[in-house]
Nucleic acid binder design. Structure first.
Lengths: 140, 140
DNA sequence: ATAAATTGTTACAGTAAGTGTAACCAATTG
DNA sequence: CAATTGGTTACACTTACTGTAACAATTTAT
């Protein structure tokens, strides 16, 4: 599952949870709404739980409840919660031969460039709150 | 091969060709410098040929020569030449059920967002010329 | 207590995608 | 015609992804 797919899935789940707040929803309910396997969704939700964005309760009448205020919750926080690897995985070719110093310099150049791009992407995501997404959904 | 790996490989090849201009270099020479398979490199170079960034000549004493002035050649142009798919492949989950209108709206939302991000990345790449990269390599 | 419901995690078979290499075709030159 | 080189295709190998199920952990209802 790509980083962007995971992010959109997480946001869909959070929107669903925000609209049904404070009633807990099970992974089955959320997954059938989104159209994704319940087990897979639980993996994503468990990471949101670890980062205290949602809360989970076991047993009957259990499920997931959104914990963080949608106005204070931003895309970048959601993204970081579900993704260990950095941003959108920009890779450069690994070197076969260390002696190729010019190639090494170019590798470093691209590492810096892609790092800059990742920072810009994250900055963009920091400016988008879950609440603003909810508003757009309801307005249209 | 990821988009970013392809881009860095193409730039490495172009730097090599720029430094040896106007002497043609074979795919073997370039690939051994970069540390990549010659056949794979030819695939990338052939796309640069189609986009008239480099020129190729067959037969003995043939090879590749950079055609476009490094000062007028930008990363975005190189990127578009070697990649059909748009930018850095930001995907969102496909929907299983068309009835889920809220999910549809969210999908559209992310399509727009990722499209914005892609445009920003391309704008950033437009500002970087091959010549500026060559200068950085020689200065350090 | 026992059973049922639910989250959290692991396992696994099946599939898809990526990799590296070789082989072949096309074009040019001597 | 033979040698060289770019351009393309094919293929086996590996790796990664996918979807599903299964199981353990935890809570609640009866």
């Amino acid at each position: 599952m790509s980083a962007s797919t995971k992010l959109s899935t997480a946001v869909k789940a959070l929107c669903y949870l925000a609209n049904s707040y404070p009633v807990p929803k099970t992974s089955s309910q959320i997954s059938s709404f989104i159209g994704i396997n319940a087990s897979k969704l639980r993996k994503i939700l468990s990471m949101l739980v670890k980062n205290k964005i949602v809360e989970s309760t076991y047993g009957m009448a259990g499920g997931f409840v959104i914990k963080k205020n949608p106005q204070k919750l931003h895309l970048q926080e959601i993204y970081c919660a579900i993704e260990d690897r950095k941003a959108f995985h920009l890779h450069i070719a690994k070197l076969n031969d260390i002696k190729l110093t010019e190639s090494v310099k170019l590798n470093n150049y691209f590492l810096e460039l892609f790092s800059d791009i990742q920072i810009e992407i994250e900055n963009k995501m920091k400016k988008i709150s879950l609440q603003s997404i909810l508003n757009k959904l309801n307005s249209k």
